[in-house]
Design a protein around this nucleic acid. Structure first.
Lengths: 161, 161
DNA sequence: ATCTTATTGTCAGAGTGCTGACATTAATAT
DNA sequence: ATATTAATGTCAGCACTCTGACAATAAGAT
């Protein structure tokens, strides 16, 4: 697979190091981290987005699909896809919510709760790796930058008040 | 996405702010930035990965699809998909490379070069936004962290077999 | 009662990214 | 000459993510 031990084409290295574009580095970091999470979660059968959705549902079982989409900064369609896959895997259950005709109540199944416990251990271990080698103050800077980098997408217009 | 000004479900806010998990923040930051790039590039018809591939090809026309995959830390299949889309859009051309029976030489078309010039202006403007509000030293910390976060995926064993 | 709007959900289509499986070519070993 | 290995490329299938379009419910305005 990629991740080879074969030497990379040398002359192209300049743009990838610590002097490269922030956007480029951000994309690669996220790619690499997601790959690591997916690999680590392989034994549970979960993906990173599925893990995130399960975690949110476990903490806030009141929330609808649309709520979760807003929280995770995803479109409703995307969250719908993730929930559908979780439902097919029998990790969540959705039963129609009387009172509110269209809303649907989402619940973790027993299997879902069990998988989530195992997955949390695996992912939180990686979280520790991510901070390794950086001081408390540096981590604050990094968090601040990540929040700014993600949030800027929502401003800049068309937020129809 | 999130075209709403509707208040987010309040109790869930804690995990998303500057105190959230680094992995979670990283994913959201990359999502948000990709979204911004795609929006900014909409008029050119390019996506972020297509832009990255074109940029690499323009700088290093000797490289094959497999080379580009290694550089971008993607699988050969993924890079193949991106190049196929670029070829369908007539932004690159691939003609069989005599000498090496299976390798194929990749070239930007005139249209590809023109689009790339416009796209570079748009993307580099965003790059400036990304650094705004952070000192030189803080940016060095951030770059160092991003490189570390991305690179850790390649080491850690199990690279073959 | 009807029209409008907001909210919630879905379907369809495209692009990106992965794994797994396979074919072709080149280089090397037996 | 044949077998093995490495490198390049492709196809199939799945998951995630977007946009665009649409249906159904809820709430308010006329």
């Amino acid at each position: 697979m990629s991740k080879t031990t074969r030497p990379l084409p040398g002359e192209a290295t300049d743009k990838r190091g610590p002097d490269g574009y922030l956007g480029y580095l951000l994309r690669q970091a996220a790619n690499g981290y997601r790959h690591r999470v997916d690999t680590s979660l392989r034994e549970t059968g979960l993906t990173q987005p599925q893990f995130a959705a399960l975690t949110m549902l476990d903490a806030y079982p009141e929330h609808s699909s649309a709520d979760l989409a807003r929280i995770a900064l995803l479109t409703p369609q995307t969250m719908s896809t993730i929930l559908r896959n979780l439902e097919n895997a029998a990790l969540i259950r959705r039963h129609p919510h009387q009172e509110h005709g269209r809303k649907r109540r989402i619940e973790l199944t027993d299997a879902g709760r069990q998988v989530l416990v195992r997955a949390k251990r695996l992912v939180y271990a990686l979280e520790t790796d991510l901070a390794e080698g950086f001081s408390e103050e540096e981590q604050r800077t990094i968090r601040r930058w990540l929040v700014a980098a993600g949030r800027r997408s929502c401003e800049g217009g068309a937020t129809k008040s």
